Simulated scan of single mutants.
Amino acid sequence: MRYLVPIFFLFIGFTSCNDFSEQNEESIKINQKRDAVFKSISKKWLFVFPENTNSEIKETISNWNEWQQFKRELEEKPKTSLLAFQMKVKNVSKKSDSLSLTVPENFNIPQVRSRLVTLNTKIKSLDTYIHLGEIPEKRILTLITEINEEIKGVYTQWDEVVTKKAIPKEIGEDDMIRALDTTRLANKKFQDEIIENENKPKPELEE
């Protein structure tokens, strides 16, 4: 009986060592996988903001504080760990929320706002996936590519706005627009007079 106690403790110690060894091995595998994901994202993390743009676009976005903050945040690449990337994406996501709500007046049209909303949606997806316990590496890399495409699309939309504004109006177009406005106004007044006359009380007929 006296030999059973030492054997029991030896068995417990051996089991504990095995459990610790397995946990340590699993922990090493997880860290190795996270390091691999970090290196993969770090290699892919490059966002392109076109520089060869129209002077009006450059001037507008240089004075657009929300866009400049968003751009600066996205261009800064984390260098330490996967956690640093997670924090970076979280910050970028917060800054992208305000873009469609603060568009400068000369670019504030539905097409531009729609582009910015789509860009924000892609960044929100990136924020979601990069914070998962099991990070889908391929999906993260695909989203980085898609975000770059959306950024390019925003600049293309701005360029279209500037191009349309630069197209000269045909001769007499302004006169035609004024004439149409005058006609519409006259028709409206005429319709208002008809409605007013119809609503006037009619005199009672004498018997």
Rank of each mutant, 00 (worst) to 15 (best):
D97Q: 14
I147P: 02
L99Y: 00
K124D: 10
K71R: 15
S125L: 15
H131G: 08
E66M: 02
C17G: 15
Y129D: 04
S125F: 12
A84T: 09
N120A: 11
E26K: 15
E173A: 15
L82C: 01
F11I: 10
I130G: 02
E51F: 07
N52Y: 10
L143T: 01
N108G: 04
K188Q: 14
L119H: 04
G172V: 07
R115Y: 02
Q111L: 13
K202H: 07
M176Q: 13
D97N: 13
R178C: 01
L10M: 13
I135Y: 02
V162N: 02
L132D: 04
P50E: 06
K124F: 10
P50S: 09
I151F: 03
S27M: 12
T182I: 09
D35G: 13
K138S: 15
V48D: 02
S100N: 11
S40D: 08
N63L: 15
S100W: 07
G172K: 06
T53A: 08
A166S: 12
I28M: 12
I151E: 01
P50H: 10
E105M: 11
K188F: 09
K39D: 05
R34Q: 15
L46Y: 12
R115L: 07
D181I: 09
P78F: 06
G133Q: 02
A186S: 13
I195F: 06
N65R: 12
D35M: 11
T145I: 11
V161D: 00
N148T: 01
P136D: 01
K124Q: 12
Y129M: 08
S93A: 14
Q32Y: 07
V162G: 03
R34I: 04
P168Q: 05
A84V: 04
M176I: 13
E75C: 05
L99R: 00
A84D: 11
D175H: 06
Q111E: 15
K88H: 02
F38R: 03
N148K: 02
K33W: 09
S27H: 08
K122D: 11
V89N: 03
R184E: 08
